[in-house]
Simulated assay, not measured.
Amino acid sequence: MSRGTAVVTGASSGIGAATARRLAAEGYDVVAAARRRERLDDLASSVPGIRAVTLDVTSAESVTSLAATLDDVAVLVNNAGGALGTEWIADADPADWQQMFETNVVGVLRVTQALLPALEAGDGGHVVVVGSIAGHLVYEGGAGYTAAKHGATAVVETMRLEFNGKPIRVTEVAPGMVHTEEFSLTRLRGDQAAADKVYEGVDHPLVADDIADVIAFAVTRPAHVNVDLLVVKPIAQAAPHKVARRTIG
């Protein structure tokens, strides 16, 4: 028996794809949504229970089109986001900041707002926002990203207040260092050597499946149980700026 429909944004790779796979294994009918349709189609063709939908969370028209196809949503995982650049404030490009806010903050608003009637339908739903430890701490060279993720955290906490009394649970999952194919590569503007260096010498950084596991835990608790916040870091990481590394060579 299906647990209901789960929508996962940013599902074409990394945490989003891993979450789509895991929720399908948990018995959800998963709508895997992202911009890169070819990747989504590959995911859907390889995992029973996943349906691919093209979605750009920065486009109101795209989000509205998605919402029009959904009447009852059990789980919404707002995963679409990401970081751009490591420049200090003196050298930061406002366009990068705007893009990070559009995906990490405004995207969460657009999708949650559009799916709110479906989340309230039936037995009620669960909104999960994939934030970051960057939403709770700051570090040099990360102001744009930390500001965006702090904004996402503020949205989550306000949702919990405003949705109180509705049949909707609200959870933030805040990962630390997760080694995925694209996160650091995108942030470092395609510099593969620099992206590899982020994880160099780190004993077992988290992987996407670790975060998918945590998300699955949160959404499969009994309906009266709300997990507010889960902060998840590898044991090698104490803070964004403090990571234990093995000596290489």
Rank of each mutant, 00 (worst) to 15 (best):
V231K: 12
T158P: 09
P48C: 14
L76E: 08
L76M: 09
P94E: 08
A74P: 14
A236N: 13
D56L: 10
V57L: 03
S46P: 05
T112C: 10
V138S: 15
M1K: 06
R245N: 10
H136E: 04
K166L: 13
P205L: 03
E157S: 03
E120R: 15
R189T: 07
D71G: 15
G4T: 04
A121G: 12
A195T: 04
Y139N: 07
P234F: 08
A152Y: 02
G151P: 11
D210Q: 04
L161Y: 05
V243Q: 10
L206S: 06
V214R: 06
V207S: 03
D56V: 05
V178K: 06
G190Q: 12
K197N: 11
A118M: 15
L229N: 13
L40Q: 09
V63L: 05
V214H: 01
Y199G: 12
D228S: 09
L43S: 03
A194E: 01
H126S: 04
V73D: 04
T86I: 10
S46E: 01
E26Y: 13
A218F: 00
V128E: 01
T58G: 05
H150S: 07
P48E: 15
F101C: 04
E200H: 15
A148K: 08
V106E: 15
A74I: 00
L84T: 03
E102W: 06
A208D: 01
R221D: 02
E87F: 05
A92T: 13
L230T: 13
V198Y: 08
R245M: 06
N164I: 00
A60G: 08
G249A: 14
L206G: 09
A80V: 15
G142V: 00
A34N: 05
R3I: 05
T146P: 00
T54P: 02
Y28K: 11
